[in-house]
Design a protein around this nucleic acid. Structure first.
Lengths: 156, 156
DNA sequence: ATTGAAAGAGTCTCAGT
DNA sequence: ACTGAGACTCTTTCAAT
């Protein structure tokens, strides 16, 4: 459980700004938010210490990298108690980049990223069929990503 | 369309490493990959120029930020031609962080991030019901995220 | 293309407020 | 808690290979 930390407007502004672009310098971000670069530095250090900021990641264009196919897979389990073992098996498939245990129709929800439809076919027909405990799956291939963005960082 | 660029093993290794941690210095990454820091710099500049690398983003712990609820929404449209107008309306709901146009059961697939169940209820019952063109929706609340990770950067 | 070194820019620390 | 300046580290450029 994450014990509540009190963040002020400046903290949220820093997070908001750097979720989109982490390359901005402390001095420049400070100018933008009307504080010194030193203050930005102190705040970010605090946000790292309390675990809100986990680091920075390279933002990569998947299409440009050759990954043209994104799909979502709804997974029905034979028994919901099989969740952990099936999750462990799904983790071994590198094309599956995300797995959630969900309420509703499906027991689990997976996101797959593949280079092409042939690779997706392989994941669905070969890799997934091997896994014991999956009753059936439903696949939703993304034809277009309308948008993808960050949450709004604010205290309400 | 992204015209193919020839990447070698070193390019893929740099991407792989920095997708996970973009804070490592060029000198340190160079040591790890047995080249100079200057070479890392040249490669990253190339990857930026060809549009594979889009920048760096702050990695934030959503739970620690107060966002405890992730849900997926399958959306049935009255007519699939309504895609664009509905997408435009969904974009106005800040809690919806991602929207895909998909094959299969649903016409669209949305991901929502909320502070609590009350906020999710508000998005589902108030915000979503206002939008013209949505026939019905199915919601899958994530009870647990088993894993979330990057694709493998490699040329096969 | 890669390297190593110099120049420039950014981060980090700290004493003062 | 914020600031500004100094110390330190990293990025960026470039001449040589």
């Amino acid at each position: 459980m994450s014990h509540k930390v009190n963040l002020d407007k400046l903290d949220y502004q820093i997070i908001q700004e750097m979720m989109e672009n982490a390359e901005i310098s402390y001095a420049d971000l400070g100018k933008k938010l009307f504080v010194s670069g030193g203050t930005i530095h102190v705040r970010i250090k605090k946000l790292e210490e309390v675990g809100i900021v986990k680091g920075t990641k390279l933002s990569v264009d998947l299409k440009a990298l050759g990954y043209d196919v994104i799909a979502f897979i709804g997974i029905y389990l034979e028994k919901s108690s099989l969740y952990d073992t099936v999750a462990k098996d799904l983790r071994k498939i590198p094309e599956i980049v995300r797995l959630n245990y969900t309420t509703g129709n499906y027991s689990m929800f997976a996101e797959v990223v593949c280079k092409d439809i042939q690779q997706l076919r392989f994941v669905l027909h070969d890799e997934l069929q091997k896994i014991k405990g999956i009753e059936r799956t439903e696949t939703f291939i993304s034809l277009d990503e309308s948008f993808s963005r960050n949450v709004i960082a604010s205290g309400e």
